[in-house]
Design a protein around this nucleic acid. Structure first.
Length: 720
DNA sequence: CAGGGTAGCT
DNA sequence: AGCTACC
């Protein structure tokens, strides 16, 4: 766990130019504290960042759902606009964000599919992110169809393995390098990044059926800009020597990601329109208008310099549903619409498994002066009682109890004595807490999860069919300390069995065969018992197989309920530990079918990294959890051949998390953990010591309750 | 801007 | 609570 680095000091741009030398970069961690690193070369001379951008995403999803749509011009319609369209439609002149009337005029044969319900897009979007994460956990989402990935580590590992004389080239295009004057050896990291990008795009295509573009560069800004240079289904690498070319090509500052409408206007007021204008503008002038930090940032962006880190996105921090309309002017309509929105939102929230603490209602009022974008919102806490209904009680009851809350908020914004005219209503849940946290006032449940510092009390959660190793002491509590407020989820993650990795993805399967708990296992007991799903016979209550019914019965009712809730599942993952299993005995076969079922595609991701790195393309066949589940012979195979482990600094892992182990977790679990760490971080910062007092609840996003996991990402998938 | 989401800063 | 940004 060394934590080296730092990072981001990067001025990678300069470094690159300086080319070989002359200045020693901060050295940064040498490549390898852990590996057989060859070169002493400072590892962080520059990063290798990938940007993935799926082609006409919503249209692709619809074409997968109904392949007949592939051959026709297809537009995805939301209200009266075409939000995106397939390439057949584009050839006929249809464009994104065109009005339906204009589009139909251009292309009368245009086939329209309504796209207001985002469910399918959201699910596919998370599959994409999870798939990427299975190769390298440093993935940041940008909208539903874009992801950034920091593959610096993976590149370094490959570089270390490369044979000296090995000749290799770039995959895909190289910006401004017409064709074959590619000299990969001048930029071996970027060249390797292009290989990784190509492999990942291929994986995305074979496993999810999606095509897209990728950009390979030394920072996010550049990766994003370059990814769009060759459009459908292609990839492009940007060499440092061409940074000014690509920046110079932008027609205005507005094209720089990070410069929105408002900023562009302010810049324009300063006479700055082109990127060059901005590059040349004295920092001081800029700072006077925008403040120094923003000024510096903008200038850097104009130069192609962006030191922002790829930040793991994790689970969403809020869930919302909205609808817009031409006109709504009676409270009855408002109430009905709000109820509709709440029903779907509550449904989503329940699948998420977390419990929202805050409810917000947002409206947009029609006004001639203001009609564009002015929204108003009011929010309020959600009484615990209602919160519980949202996540585990009757959804209808939850909706019915939320409705009056929503209406109160509405009356705070609209005087119903006078006429009103709304054009949009949005309902949002935020401040999402894990169920365990919410349920237990103070950590009762978590104590079951915690691997406390004292070995003797430690209780371990075991995941089905899997070996647990209570890990020797991970001792995170030291770091985060104290009573449980934060400490528990910092447990060292540990590995999953192959079957457990799939469980969360499909939801609730664990009720049937997943595992659990309790009882000190000081170390690794390999429970094979309970592997058989049939053992669910355990119950009426559907207790997981290895739960001791006696123990279970002693628990308070709400805690029992908690143990059966979806949220708990992930807490299993975040707390259980074991050795891993890389997946081992995977059966291999040669070729993936073009389409995969959910379970196939997801379960495959497990060994994705192995495959990628070892160039072993075999995939495992997944037998839904039958006893042997191959999985875990309890063996810890773990070869690490070419696996890549993020450095803790990359990912902002808690210091004692073993990146290697982390990298072997299923992607969804990785995301949960990451999201959790991310949430805790501010706390760590603000309260250096342990007694955070108020800071915990005030500014920090989320009292991390003890609970456990951040969230169950599996909700984003259909239960199979 | 449209549309239905998101996230971060203030 | 609002604004800005991103898709």
């Amino acid at each position: 766990m060394e934590n080296s680095e730092d990072e981001e000091d990067e001025n990678e741009w300069m470094n690159s130019f300086v080319d070989s030398s002359t200045h020693s970069p901060p050295a940064a961690a040498a490549a390898a504290a852990s590996g057989p690193s060859i070169s002493k070369t400072p590892v962080r001379a520059h990063r290798v960042i990938l940007h993935f951008d799926l082609d006409c995403f919503y249209a692709q999803v619809e074409m997968i759902r109904n392949p007949a749509l592939r051959e026709v011009p297809l537009g995805i319609q939301q209200k009266y606009i075409i939000v995106t369209c397939n390439y057949v439609a584009r050839e006929r002149g249809v464009n994104k964000l065109m009005s339906v009337t204009d589009a139909k005029e251009k292309c009368p044969e245009l086939v329209l599919v309504k796209g207001e319900d985002l469910t399918h897009y959201r699910e596919m979007s998370y599959k994409m992110t999870d798939l990427l994460m299975s190769y390298c956990p440093l993935v940041e989402r940008l909208g539903f169809d874009e992801n950034f990935m920091d593959v610096t580590e993976m590149v370094e590992q490959r570089l270390a393995q490369i044979v000296k004389s090995e000749d290799f080239s770039f995959k895909g295009h190289v910006y401004n390098h017409p064709s074959a004057d590619v000299k990969a050896s001048n930029y071996p990291r970027l060249a390797l990044g292009s290989h990784i990008a190509a492999e990942l795009r291929e994986a995305v295509h074979s496993k999810l059926g999606l095509t897209g573009c990728a950009g390979i560069a030394t920072n996010k800004l550049l990766a994003k800009l370059v990814s769009g240079t060759f459009k459908p289904n292609q990839q492009t690498t940007l060499l440092p020597e061409n940074i000014s070319d690509i920046m110079g090509c932008l027609s205005s500052v507005r094209k720089v990601p990070g410069v929105g409408h408002q900023t562009a206007k302010r810049l324009q007021a300063l006479g700055l329109v082109s990127v060059k204008d901005l590059q040349l503008c004295p920092l001081n002038d800029l700072a006077k208008e925008l403040g120094s930090p923003t000024a510096q940032r903008l200038k850097n962006l104009a130069l192609g310099v962006d030191d922002s880190a790829v930040t793991c996105t994790g689970a969403p921090q809020s869930l919302s549903d909205e609808d817009s309309f031409k006109k709504m002017s009676s409270t009855k309509e408002v109430s009905e619409k709000t109820q509709q929105l709440l029903s779907s939102l509550v449904g989503r929230m329940r699948k998420d498994g977390r419990q929202p603490q805050t409810f917000r209602l947002t409206i947009r009022k029609y006004t001639t002066t203001n009609k564009w974008f002015s929204r108003e919102s009011r929010q309020c806490p959600i009484p615990n009682q209602i919160g519980q209904k949202i996540s585990s009680g009757s959804s209808d009851d939850a909706v019915m109890q939320l409705l009056p809350l929503a209406m109160k908020l509405f009356y705070r914004m609209v005087d119903c004595g006078a006429p009103f005219h709304l054009t949009l209503i949005n309902v949002c849940f935020s401040n999402l807490q894990t169920r365990a946290a919410a349920v237990t006032g103070k950590g009762s449940i978590t104590s079951f999860f915690s691997q406390s510092t004292s070995p003797k009390k430690s209780q371990t959660v075991v995941s089905q069919c899997q070996c647990v190793d209570s890990s020797q002491g991970i001792d995170m509590d030291h770091q985060f300390g104290t009573d449980g407020l934060i400490s528990q989820h910092n447990k060292q993650p540990a590995t999953q069995s192959s079957s457990s990795s799939e469980a969360p993805l499909h939801g609730l399967r664990w009720k049937q065969n997943s595992a659990v708990i309790v009882e000190n296992t000081r170390n690794a007991s390999c429970s094979t018992a309970g592997c058989d799903p049939d053992e669910t016979a355990n119950a009426v209550t559907r207790l997981p197989p290895n739960v001791d019914p006696e123990v279970f019965k002693l628990l308070p009712e709400d805690i029992q309920k908690e143990l059966l809730s979806p949220a708990y599942v992930s807490s299993l993952y975040s707390t259980s530990s074991s050795q891993s299993g890389t997946d081992v005995p995977s059966t291999s076969k040669n070729k993936l079918p073009e389409t995969l079922t959910d379970s196939e595609s997801i379960s495959d991701t497990k060994d994705a990294a192995n495959k990628l790195n070892s160039s072993n393309r075999a995939t495992t066949v997944n037998h839904q959890g039958k006893a042997g589940t191959s999985a875990f012979p309890g063996e810890d195979v773990m070869e690490e051949g070419g696996l890549s482990f993020p450095r803790s600094s990359d990912c902002e892992f808690p210091g004692n998390v073993d990146p290697k182990v982390f990298s072997e977790l299923p992607p969804d679990v990785q995301r949960e953990l990451m999201s959790e760490w991310k949430q805790q971080k501010p706390i760590l910062k603000t309260s250096s010591s342990k007694k955070p007092g108020k800071s915990l609840m005030t500014k920090d996003r989320k009292a991390p309750g003890k609970g456990s996991q951040a969230n169950n990402l599996f909700k984003y998938f259909k239960p199979s």
